[in-house]
Computed example of a mutant assay.
Amino acid sequence: MKKYIVFLLILVVISCSKDDFSDHSMESKVVVEGWIEEGDYAQVLLSSSIPITDAIDSTNVLNHVIRSAKITISDGKISEVLKVKNDKNRVPPFVYFGSTLKGEAGKEYTLKIEYLNRVIEAVTKIPKSVELKSAEYIKKVATDTTGYVFVKFDDPVNEKNYYQIATKIDGEEPIFVPSFYGNLDDKNFTKAEVSVQINRGVILFPKTKFTPYFADGDLIHVKLRTQNKDALDFWNSWQNEIVNSKNPIFPANASLKSNIKGGIGIWAGYGQSTLLVKTPPKK
């Protein structure tokens, strides 16, 4: 299997002021991408932010991965120190993972990262999952070899919900990738029955041209996540940076939203519902 740079939050310390670019003494920040889903264990990716003056390639990315932190998660009653594993299908290949605390809807989970002389903390809560009713691969023209995925679900009445739709192509992508424009606030829904077109999200950097569609031969895992407002704000700001700069690792002119105290990034709890979509065989 090919290896992909799948650490979505490889961030660069950057300011609106160009004078800051020459400040080589700027302290790097700890970058966190962590999550715990209902029915699954926590995963956390850690790195230090990359100065704007540094080259961005797989070697430099590996140099900024943090592998020696102590990460503790707790639900208020049980605490667990995450272990580190080497996942050769990812670049960077190091993932902190849990095996004791399984996510439960309605529960609050704290994250504590101890690294060198720093303590980084965050809190999240797992919202109740919403069932994904259907997911279908549809082409605009029958003879096309590419298409989009359309999903349907019912937004619970009298409940405030925020959603993220993510996809994973079997055999090609090792993680679920947030869909482009797949962060949804139910205040924008006109009715409880929701139907949404899914555009493929950005994962590959830097040599593969981004295409927002899926193709014949793809086996597509589609996930509907419920998320909290801080996660929605984070992923919307992350997406805006991609739109503005055409590059997911270079913030264009604003900082990403974050719920991390002492660092940057996201610690999110998700509800989740997943369906598998089969496409026609590749010709």
Rank of each mutant, 00 (worst) to 15 (best):
K3S: 11
L8R: 13
C16W: 09
S22E: 15
D23L: 12
H24S: 13
S25Q: 09
K29G: 06
V31I: 14
G34F: 02
L45F: 15
L46K: 14
S47Y: 07
S48M: 13
I50Q: 04
D54V: 07
A55G: 00
I56K: 12
S58P: 03
V61W: 02
V65F: 00
K70S: 14
I71R: 05
I73N: 08
K77M: 13
V81C: 06
V81I: 15
N89E: 12
P92L: 01
F94A: 00
T100E: 14
Y115M: 03
Y115H: 11
N117Q: 08
R118G: 00
V119D: 01
A122S: 15
T124A: 04
E136Q: 11
K139D: 03
K140V: 13
K140C: 05
G147M: 04
F150P: 00
F153E: 00
D154A: 04
D155W: 03
P156A: 07
V157S: 10
P174G: 02
V177I: 15
D185E: 09
D186V: 00
K187N: 07
N188A: 08
K191M: 02
E193I: 10
N199C: 07
T208S: 13
T208F: 14
F210Y: 15
P212I: 09
L219R: 01
V222A: 04
L232P: 05
N236R: 15
I242R: 09
V243R: 12
N253Q: 07
N253I: 10
G265I: 10
G265H: 10
K278G: 05
K278I: 01
